[in-house]
Write a protein that binds this DNA or RNA. Structure first.
Lengths: 339, 339
DNA sequence: GGAAACACTGCAATCGATTGCTAATTGGTG
DNA sequence: CACCAATTAGCAATCGATTGCAGTGTTTCC
């Protein structure tokens, strides 16, 4: 495989055309394997291109064709500024999205934005670089997303569904999920419940509401809600604070995410509480790591892989100009060891 | 805030120019806030642009200026085809990279490639869409990366360093890391060691070599190596198989990653082995979740955040035309509960 | 009063590939 | 031999923004 000395570097189609003795148009068609050009010339040009390691400039191509093959993935961090992009839920969903999109030949551009104004999403979708966009999580930006969704079709959002909304969302029924978790704790005999989670975004607020509804009207059951950030460094100390506050007056905790549950269990463990015997704990998400901890986490499963598929599918349809409705998936209780 | 009816949509600079009664060039300069255009006209044009929600097409801009502001992040899955992009290590590093890059105003394009030919990296760097590229993990593609690195400067790789290489790598001294883990187990009194990991890629192979070197020459110490894939679905059954094979003839396990360690500990736990009392286990990476499990993981820390910073820093220098050498970070043993 | 310096703005080329239309060649047919 | 259809290739406009250079006013200074 002794590569002969690489021929001069070709930098555009025109040069290749000159070398091949044809016009730029012909080269373009040849490289696109169009039948309009003679099979022989076509192959000759392709061989020449390979030999010189020439690849057409994508920027120019995209400018001309007005399509980029790039999907934007946007993570708005509105009320959760401290949240790191490496949050496991984001990353897991993102990973599945990446798998789906690359499989269908799309590239994928990540933007993490801290919404400082009303324009953050406009900037992204109007940049002319994207065939479509996926927004992960509504944060506290529902209105902004709604406004953009009205005039920009190829947009799909992971998050909650509100009646009458314009945006196309994919997500689970969070209230139902919260209820599932609460009922599991009640079934174990828990009476003094707590909810750990930050209810500023619609998703977690709904989970909390689900818990509320499931416990409403039960005379001997109490429920307290403790705002808990997702930023992982603060989370631990906040949870410690919550547990200080309640002492042992709690026997069941609904956590708004697996990460919160994980940290909660660790701190309970440090303080000598047995999980689930003294305090039962549920998570939410069913991340891959839920099965890997000790005790394994009882949690409300969002089928993230299916969600990613649904998002990409809806987006594809919308890019093609069709309409695609929102998807509301049913959550499922995965009963393991922690509750 | 009753938005007046949105004026007609402006689609390019020329139209805006017509409305503003100036030439396209002036608009371009005004939007770029160049002092060459009169402050008043400049502000008038900017206001007009805002009012119409106009944003210049990035594709055209990039074609013209020959710079994209986009960094490619490439994950080659050579010997690990089954490995999912949502692997926690990838995602953690990727998250930090994203944080670093977005902070410096870069966009970030993700490509996950299953190298089917020798050209996968050429295709990416020659597409004309990227200002630079970061490769996460060498997999079994060291040679390909080396070849591309010779003519493409703005390329930085996460992985092992080999003497005399052309590519700019950032990574820890894997052999030293392996040795740290092994010595920890030996210090605890472990005699019958095992290494769980797939040694096809250079990084894990070196970790294994580090373990070997640390145990070499110790008469009463044994070491067995068990290939263990990272694809998380298979990993569990493979590990179960390994543990079947060794029975209780093992008292210390060096795992090639935290994920492997996590799974190993869970399976040991299921089988009634006490960790670390009967079997001590070490991880590698020190992912955020290492502190969150029970027992907390004793592991060899790669400072992923620092690594990400180093990668982005080297890349920036290389984009600017300077040279940047490889970085070899020293691993550190983080002693927690599992060993 | 005239020349020189200065501040803006416009013109038109450019980045590199794509594609509708036209032109040229070939072959076939009446 | 003339005419038509089918292939194949070239020409030039186009996508939308950027920027060097030239041109027009205006101010300043001698």
């Amino acid at each position: 495989m002794d590569d002969v000395k690489k021929p001069v570097k070709i930098k555009n189609i025109a040069e290749l055309a000159r070398i091949a003795g044809v016009s730029a148009g012909t080269v373009s068609r040849a490289l696109a394997d169009k039948s309009l050009v003679n099979k022989e010339t076509r192959e000759r040009i392709q061989a020449l291109a390979r030999e010189h390691g020439f690849r057409p400039n994508q920027m120019a191509r995209r400018l001309r064709t007005q399509q980029t093959g790039v999907i934007g993935v946007v993570i708005p961090l509105g009320h959760e500024r401290r949240q790191h992009i490496s949050d496991p839920f984001f990353m897991t969903l993102f990973g599945y999205l990446a798998d789906e999109l690359t499989e269908s030949g799309h590239d994928l551009m990540l933007s993490r934005v801290i919404p400082g104004d009303e324009e953050w999403l406009d900037r992204i979708v109007d940049s002319g670089m994207l065939d479509g966009a996926l927004v992960i999580g509504q944060s506290d930006q529902f209105e902004v997303i709604e406004r953009v969704a009205e005039h920009y079709r190829p947009l799909v959002v992971w998050g909650s569904h509100r009646a009458g909304q314009k945006q196309c969302t994919v997500g689970v029924d969070n209230a139902a999920g919260g209820a599932l978790a609460a009922r599991r704790l009640l079934a174990r005999g828990a009476k003094r419940l707590a909810f750990f989670g930050d209810t500023h975004g619609p998703e977690i607020a709904e989970r909390q509401r689900g818990v509320e509804q499931a416990t409403a009207g039960l005379a001997d059951v109490s429920l307290a809600t403790f705002p808990t950030h997702l930023a992982s460094d603060e989370m631990a100390s906040q949870i410690a604070g919550h547990l200080d506050a309640v002492g042992d007056a709690v026997d069941g905790i609904v956590c708004a995410s697996d990460m919160i549950a994980m940290t909660t269990i660790r701190i309970l463990h440090e303080r000598g509480f047995a999980v689930p015997e003294q305090v039962a704990v549920t998570g939410f998400d069913d991340l891959p790591l839920a099965t890997r901890m000790v005790p394994q986490l009882t949690t409300v499963k969002q089928d993230i892989a299916a969600g990613a598929r649904a998002m990409v599918d809806s987006l594809r349809r919308r890019i093609a100009g069709e309409d695609a409705p929102s998807t509301i998936m049913q959550p499922e209780l995965v009963q393991r060891e922690s509750a």
